[in-house]
């Protein structure tokens, strides 16, 4: 369920890989009361040079610096707000931007192989089941990735020891059919017939007593799904 709630945006780009890229410090930061660092020292030096400021070059933006900036802004016809934004910056002759990052030449890549791994698992676990049952198996794996009780990657979930029978038997490596691929894609695209289930089992073959302590959400074909 978290998927639907937490980041529907993520699903917009579900096929792709999302890289979180930080463009930190590429744009010059505004300097205001409370700022500190080398840039503030530079600001104070410039203000001292033009007699707006007579305090210490402390590198800390305090009341004296604030007044000095306001004075500077007033005399130079800028918005008087005591904040060194882009305009005040250029009036002060301070660099308005730090150097732009060099644009990468290569393009982003996506982990499309997740589809294959998911399709193999679906095929091995639920061949012969109704289509929605296959999508449901895929959804359980994706729900596990998001759950705190399970590993956080698809490979981690699928290959977790003692988790899936076909992994143990090696049938996970069988080539999936079209239906399993379609089910894997539907699951990745957000279809979840189970409403957030984390477990599924076949009542006829399940050996673990523990599994029956789970809350059942629905039954499809031979499988029982639960949270």
């Amino acid at each position: 369920m978290k998927r639907k709630i937490a980041i529907p945006l993520v699903t917009i780009l579900i096929i792709g890989l999302f890289a979180v890229v930080f463009f930190e410090n590429t744009h010059a930061q505004n300097l205001s009361w409370g700022s500190s660092g080398e840039e503030v020292s530079e600001l104070q030096r410039r203000l001292t040079r033009w007699d707006y400021y007579d305090g210490p070059i402390s590198g800390t933006f305090g009341p004296q610096t604030y007044e000095a900036v306001r004075l500077f802004q007033r005399r130079n016809g800028l918005t008087v707000d005591g904040v060194v934004g882009p305009q005040t910056r250029s009036a002060l002759g301070m660099p308005t931007t730090t150097p732009a990052p060099t644009a990468p030449v290569s393009r982003g890549v996506s982990r499309s192989d997740d589809v294959n791994l998911l399709a193999r698992t679906i095929y091995a676990e639920s061949r012969g089941e109704p289509y929605e049952g296959q999508v449901a198996v895929g959804a359980v794996i994706l729900n596990r990735i998001r759950s705190q009780d399970f590993p956080n990657t698809m490979a981690g979930v699928v290959y977790q020891p003692c988790a899936f029978e076909p992994v143990k038997r090696g049938t996970i490596n069988d080539t999936p059919d079209d239906s399993a691929y379609r089910a894997a894609r539907d699951a990745l695209n957000g279809w979840d017939p189970t409403g957030g289930a984390l477990y599924f089992w076949n009542p006829a073959t399940a050996t673990s007593r523990w599994i029956w302590t789970r809350t059942i959400t629905l039954r499809i074909g031979r499988h029982v799904f639960g949270v």
């Binding site: 945006l9 890989l17 979180v20 890229v21 644009a103 990468p104 393009r107």
Partner: peptide, 29 residues
């Protein structure tokens, strides 16, 4: 940026950058 497209979300209240998504163009998306 470079060869890639990104979606950047800047909070309309305080200007904090909330999210960056990298768009991976595929032939089918």
């Amino acid at each position: 940026f470079g060869e890639d497209h990104y979606l950047i979300y800047i909070d309309a209240k305080d200007g904090i950058q909330r999210e960056i998504l990298l768009l991976v163009d595929q032939e089918d998306g």
